[in-house]
Simulated assay, not measured.
Amino acid sequence: MTVTEVEGRRLTLTNLDKVIHPATGTTKGELVHHYAVNAGTLLPHLHDRPLSFLRYPDGPGGQRFFTKNVPPGTPGWVKSSEVPRHGDAPARQVLVQDLPSLVWAANLVVEFHTPQWRATEPEQADRLVLDLDPGSPATVVECCVLARWLRDRLAEDGLASYVKTSGSKGLHLLCPLVPAPAAEVSAYARSLAELAAAELPELAVAVMRRAARPGKVFVDWSQNAAAKTTAAPYTLRARESPEVSTPVTWEEVAGCADPRELAFTLADVPDRIAAHGDLLGGLLNAARARPLPAVRRPRA
C-alpha cells in the first residue's frame, strides 16, 4: 500500500506491483502511471461525461464487471452527476474532472467508458460515434477500408471525422456535433450504417446478428443511444497486452496493410502524443461542431 498526495488530495494506492497484463508483465503501478502522465490529454475527453467503469482488478483473465453507479468507498471529493434512467429513478455516476480523481479511478483498474453526451446536457449528444467491429477473418485492415468510405460520406454531409483504434480489434470514427437528441443521432448513424451495407455488401454489415458478421465489418451505430457508452480515448483495455484506444491519423488508416500496424500499448502512447499532439483535439473544439445532418437515404 502506498499513500501519496496528488494536487492536495490524499490517495491510497494498493498492489502496485501486481501484474495486470500478463503478456507483457505490466503492473498496476505502470497502469496508474499511464493515466497520470497522460492526464493532460485524456482528461478533456472525460470532462463532464458520466463514466462507466469496466473493472478488471485481477487482470483480463479474472473477474470483470461493469460499474455505472458511484462505487462504494468513493472519496467525497470525487464529483458525480445524476443520470436519467428510463423507467427508473435517476442514478449517480462518477465524473473524473481532475488528476486526483483520475488516479483514484485508475487504482480501481478500469476501462473508462463515456456516453456521447455531457452531464450538463443529458441525452443531447455532442458527438457521433461509429464502432467498426471486424468479424474474423476480417481485421482492422478491412475496418480501415470501410472507415475511409464512411469518412467521405460524413464529409458529404458536412461532418469532420476523427479516428482511433478501439484498443481491441477495430476502429472508432467520431464526429463533433452541435448537441442533438441522442435518438436522432442514432437514427442518422443507423442510416449511414445501412447505406454502407447496401453499397459495400461484401465488406459492411449493419445488423447486430453475429451470424451475419464473419469476414465483414459490423458498423455498430447503436452506441449513439443515450444509455450506451464507448471506450474513451487513451483508455487501457482489459486484454492480455496493455492495449490502448489510440487516436491515429488518416494517413495511417490509408496505409494499414497489417493489423499490427494499428496496435498500440501504453508504452507507445507518450511518443505518439509528443509527435502528434492530441489527434482527437478537434472533438473538443466547439467551432468544429456541425448540426446533425438529415437521415441518409439509399442512393437511387
Score class of each variant (00 low, 15 high):
6 V>L: 11
7 E>T: 12
8 G>R: 03
16 L>W: 04
20 I>V: 02
20 I>W: 03
21 H>R: 00
22 P>E: 03
22 P>L: 05
23 A>R: 05
24 T>V: 00
25 G>K: 06
26 T>Y: 02
27 T>F: 04
30 E>T: 01
34 H>I: 04
37 V>Q: 15
38 N>F: 03
39 A>H: 15
40 G>M: 09
41 T>K: 05
44 P>H: 09
45 H>F: 03
53 F>H: 12
55 R>V: 14
55 R>C: 11
55 R>E: 14
56 Y>N: 07
57 P>C: 14
58 D>C: 05
58 D>V: 04
59 G>L: 10
68 K>M: 05
69 N>C: 08
70 V>D: 06
72 P>W: 07
74 T>C: 11
75 P>E: 01
76 G>P: 00
79 K>M: 03
81 S>I: 01
81 S>Y: 00
83 V>W: 04
88 D>E: 03
89 A>I: 05
91 A>E: 10
93 Q>P: 02
93 Q>A: 01
96 V>R: 09
100 P>E: 05
101 S>A: 15
101 S>D: 10
102 L>M: 09
103 V>L: 14
104 W>S: 14
106 A>Q: 11
116 Q>D: 08
117 W>V: 10
118 R>L: 05
121 E>Q: 13
123 E>A: 13
123 E>M: 06
125 A>F: 10
125 A>R: 09
126 D>E: 15
126 D>C: 09
128 L>A: 15
128 L>D: 12
132 L>E: 11
132 L>D: 09
134 P>W: 08
134 P>S: 04
141 V>L: 02
144 C>I: 00
145 V>L: 14
145 V>W: 10
149 W>G: 06
154 L>S: 06
154 L>W: 14
156 E>H: 15
159 L>F: 15
160 A>G: 13
161 S>Y: 11
171 L>W: 03
171 L>H: 12
174 L>G: 06
179 P>D: 09
185 V>L: 00
186 S>E: 04
187 A>F: 07
190 R>N: 14
190 R>H: 13
191 S>L: 07
194 E>W: 00
194 E>D: 13
201 P>K: 13
202 E>Y: 01
207 V>P: 02
209 R>L: 12
210 R>F: 06
210 R>G: 07
211 A>C: 02
213 R>L: 13
215 G>Q: 01
216 K>D: 01
216 K>C: 06
219 V>A: 13
222 S>E: 12
222 S>N: 11
226 A>F: 11
227 A>D: 10
232 A>G: 07
233 P>A: 01
233 P>Y: 00
234 Y>C: 02
234 Y>F: 08
239 R>G: 00
240 E>M: 07
241 S>C: 04
242 P>C: 05
245 S>Q: 10
249 T>A: 08
257 A>K: 12
258 D>C: 13
260 R>S: 10
264 F>T: 03
265 T>K: 02
274 A>G: 06
274 A>K: 10
276 H>L: 05
277 G>L: 08
278 D>K: 06
278 D>C: 01
278 D>R: 04
283 L>W: 01
284 L>A: 00
285 N>V: 07
286 A>H: 15
287 A>T: 09
293 P>E: 09
297 R>M: 05
